[in-house]
Design a protein around this nucleic acid. Structure first.
Lengths: 244, 244
DNA sequence: TCGCTATCGATAGTTACAGTATCCATTATG
DNA sequence: CATAATGGATACTGTAACTATCGATAGCGA
């Protein structure tokens, strides 16, 4: 176990903790108080750390994910669903209620239609326009709708204008994601466990990658549009040095 | 204060807590133990809840953000930087060290070049290829590089193939983001506070929106590529019903 | 074989975060 | 004037993710 700790950089008590939580499979017993850990354990620990640190998953979600990963015949679509739920459920607390305690509806009673929310309606429209066919329980639906509703409630209706561009971007990203899965399938002649790996890692870490690239592109685009930030005097020190 | 609580759906003790933490500006004093809260407080509370619940920011980051937002002459580029740091720093713990305690470098000593990491090199290349000019301290650089390094360390080198598509998508998204800011600027003749709002809300919530849309697009694309998931028997119940 | 260290497993403790709860001296309100 | 609420301070709760300690072995070198 010391060796496993050394090879992964994770403290021994933490490894014990992961064993307890079912994140890490037990080693092969050699005696009542001795076990042998192999490369599969090293890989598993690395994956766990990646999901938690880079992907930001809580440990319970990571446990679900790795459990699903080692279930033998799990079809790709199910693995996708599990990965998606894992990264989404930290953003969707429990039941998406607004907790408005009293007369808190934002002032204007909208149309009498039984439409759930503006956001949901917009997303449904978007799906129709793009030909996206998904299950109603796809966590992305609630997530995206929630953001749109929040834009509205913050009086940022102008931000709804970004929706189409975001959708186009999402399409591109999803195409790349699935292409990676397909490539893995081809290389390994449809080895489900390899495909699961790609799906899990790609889905969970992909969010971070995309977010990071977005920040870079934002700053670059910002320079393009507002080349010299107005030479305003401010209390905090700003860094407006030359870009790298 | 009860009224503020009722109008926002946030418990009174929580509002007190936000006041203490500097998230919420104090009300106008009418007597030593009485204060008047107005619409600005309602808006602020809604913004705080949105940043925390939808954007997933920790309270300390939200405090930085709202503080920056109300700083008078803050240039747009600085606001962008603050918003970006707020959404990034939960993914970048402190100093991005690998904490490998002993002989933990993944077995093969790579080339003798002083290149920081493969990820950083790839991102630098990408920036050059796309004409992205950014400061070296842009949090997206570290974030994206980290994900790429993690792909490698997990033996998922094949996922590096998605990078170009992701970058193109990020470009699209950033263009839309900046277009929204520009539109707001035009509408309000360059009102910095309105622009700050758009930048903050767009940056923080945009990540969630994009992530949500990605999940939808992924599932849709998954159906397109793997129309009928192989009829495998598995322990857990799968839902492969008709899409909505 | 002795002694040292490490292991497994269990239980308990720690730190950080995000609130909640309680108390108190006022103060508004019916 | 009595009740209820307010602002402010302090203290407490609950969860997440570890971290420390303990006790009974078990391996390994001298």
């Amino acid at each position: 176990m010391r060796e496993l700790s050394d090879r992964t950089g994770v403290a021994v008590p933490t490894l014990k903790f992961y064993l307890r939580e079912g994140l890490l499979h037990a080693g092969e017993r050699t005696s009542p108080n001795q076990a042998q850990y192999d490369d599969s354990h090293v890989d598993r620990v690395r994956l766990i750390r990646a999901l938690i640190e880079v992907g930001g998953l809580p440990i319970a979600r990571a446990a679900e994910v790795v459990t699903a990963m080692q279930t033998p015949g799990m079809p790709v679509s199910s693995v996708f669903g599990i990965a998606q739920r894992a990264v989404s459920e930290r953003a969707l607390p429990d039941d998406t209620d607004a907790t408005y305690s009293a007369g808190a509806v934002p002032s204007d009673a909208r149309g009498p239609l039984p439409t759930r929310t503006t956001g949901e309606a917009l997303i449904a429209e978007l799906c129709a326009a793009r030909g996206w066919a998904v299950h109603a329980n796809n966590p992305g639906l609630a997530m995206a709708a929630r953001v749109l509703d929040t834009y509205e409630s913050l009086g940022q209706r102008r931000l709804l204008a970004v929706l189409d561009a975001y959708a186009a971007a999402a399409d591109r990203v999803a195409a790349a994601d699935l292409a990676a899965v397909a490539a893995a399938a081809e290389e390994t002649r449809g080895d489900l466990s390899v495909m699961s790996d790609v799906v899990i890692v790609g889905t969970v870490l992909g969010d971070s990658l995309l977010a990071g690239l977005r920040r870079i592109a934002q700053e670059a685009e910002s320079f393009r549009r507002f080349p010299a930030p107005p030479p305003a005097a401010s209390a905090t020190p700003h860094q407006q040095d030359p870009p790298c």
